[in-house]
Structure formats: C-alpha cells, structure tokens
Amino acid sequence: MSERIRVVLVDDDPLVRAGLGMILGGAPDIEVVAEAADGVAGVTTVAAEQPDVVLMDLRMPRRDGLEATRLIVADQAGSSRLEPTRVIVLTTFDTDDMVVNALRVGASGFLLKDTPPERIVDAIRSVAAGEPTLSPTVTAQLIASLTSADDGRATAARAQLATLTDREREVAVAIGEGKSNAEIAAALYLGVPTVKTHVSRLLTKLGAENRVQIAMVVHDAGRD
C-alpha cells in the first residue's frame, strides 16, 4: 500500500460523492484519486487507478455495486499487486440482502451512508490495513437477515468448519464477532503474528477471499 491511502468513490449521487470527498479531504493520509457515477465507470476507473480502497454504492444505473464489486475482486485475483484493492460498500438498512451478497462476492466491509465522518475515515484506514469494517450493531442485523436463508448453506458451512483445528475454529469465531487481530490475540492469549498465521490458513481452508467471508461462514454455520 502506498504511503497515502488512495481511494476511488463510486456513487451515482454527485452530492454523496462531494460529501465524501470533503470528509476524506480532511484526512492527511487519505487521497481521493478518482470518482465514478455508476458501476460500469467504477470498474473501469478502478482498473486504471488501482486504488487501495473503493467506496462503492450498491444501487446505481447501468451496473449495480454488487456486480461491480464482484468484477473488481475477481480482477484482483490476477493482479501482481502486493496489496489488493479492497471494496467497502455503502448502504442503508433497506438493502440488507444486497449487503450480504456483496460480502459474499468479496467486499471487505460496509458502511451506512449516515456513518459519522470520523468513522468513515477510520473504516478506510482499517480496510486498507487488511481489517474488515464489521460494525457489531449492523452485523447483528445482517445475521438476523440470514435466518431465513437456505438451510443447505448452513450444512455446507458446518462441514467447512469441521475441517478446522480447534484453535482455527476459535479464531474463525472471533473473526465472526468482528474482532481485530489484536483483539483476537488478547482474547486467546496468542501473539498477533500467530493470529495472522491462523487467518491465512483459514482463508485457504475455507476458500475465502477475505476475513468478511470467513465471518459469513461462521454466521451460516451457527444458524439452527
């Protein structure tokens, strides 16, 4: 990642983009390098700019944020960058299903559009450093929205967790609770480097693109 966190804004509302630009412009370590007004332009812009973080609206013309996120994450698979571009989706409470799907296709987290400015800045810094933005309050709402989902997914998730060691499962559950590496280390009496090693193994074993997808497997497995 570059010294300054390079951000691309993708939202069809120019007022939202302007507001985000003003918020991020006050952070000395963050630079908005480009904007796009829909998902098609967003994917093209991200490919050209190769930012560290994308703030992605979900509901947009031509191509929605879900498909744009999927394409951006898929493109990272063939990238030679040491740190991939990470996507934070922007949403409101009435788009829970789209948020869940966005996390499944590889988004690194989500923010509500009325999130306080300082929280937006902190979230971008966290995601750029490889830590997902999982607000416990909103995560609880997402878990609730999954309770009526396909039972087959719960069975598959439990089978995946069954392949893990006891310690790996403990780390996975902690990730599902939204804990950072430092918080996991403190809770499980481990060193942060050890936690990072477990996270890397979890990504491989669970076939996950990021920590958020690990959390989704844990949440699916925990449903009755």
Rank of each mutant, 00 (worst) to 15 (best):
E170L: 11
I120P: 08
D166P: 00
M98G: 09
V138N: 01
K113Q: 11
L142D: 00
G152L: 08
A157L: 11
Y189D: 15
T147A: 01
V89E: 03
A187V: 09
A172H: 04
T95D: 13
A182E: 15
I88C: 03
T95S: 09
T133D: 10
A208D: 04
E183Y: 09
R119D: 15
A162R: 12
S126D: 15
T137G: 04
P136I: 07
T95A: 14
G152H: 13
I184E: 02
D97T: 03
R158S: 12
K179N: 14
T204A: 12
A107Y: 06
P84I: 11
T204V: 13
P84K: 10
S108P: 08
I120Y: 11
G130E: 13
T163V: 09
S180L: 14
L206K: 03
D94N: 12
E118G: 07
T133H: 13
E118Q: 15
T91W: 01
V138L: 07
G176R: 03
A174M: 10
T92H: 04
P116I: 12
A159K: 12
D94F: 02
L112M: 15
V89C: 06
N101W: 02
I184C: 03
A154G: 05
V121E: 05
P116H: 14
T137F: 06
R119F: 09
I143P: 00
A185W: 07
R104W: 08
T163G: 04
V171W: 07
G178I: 01
T85N: 03
D151K: 10
R125V: 05
S148L: 05
A154W: 01
T85D: 08
D150Y: 01
T204R: 10
L90C: 06
S180W: 13
P193L: 04
Q141A: 04
V89L: 07
V100N: 04
A144R: 02
D166Q: 12
L142I: 09
L90Q: 08
A162L: 05
Q160C: 06
T204Y: 03
A140L: 02
I175F: 07
A174P: 01
G207R: 00
T133C: 10
D150M: 02
A102Q: 06
S145C: 00
P193A: 06
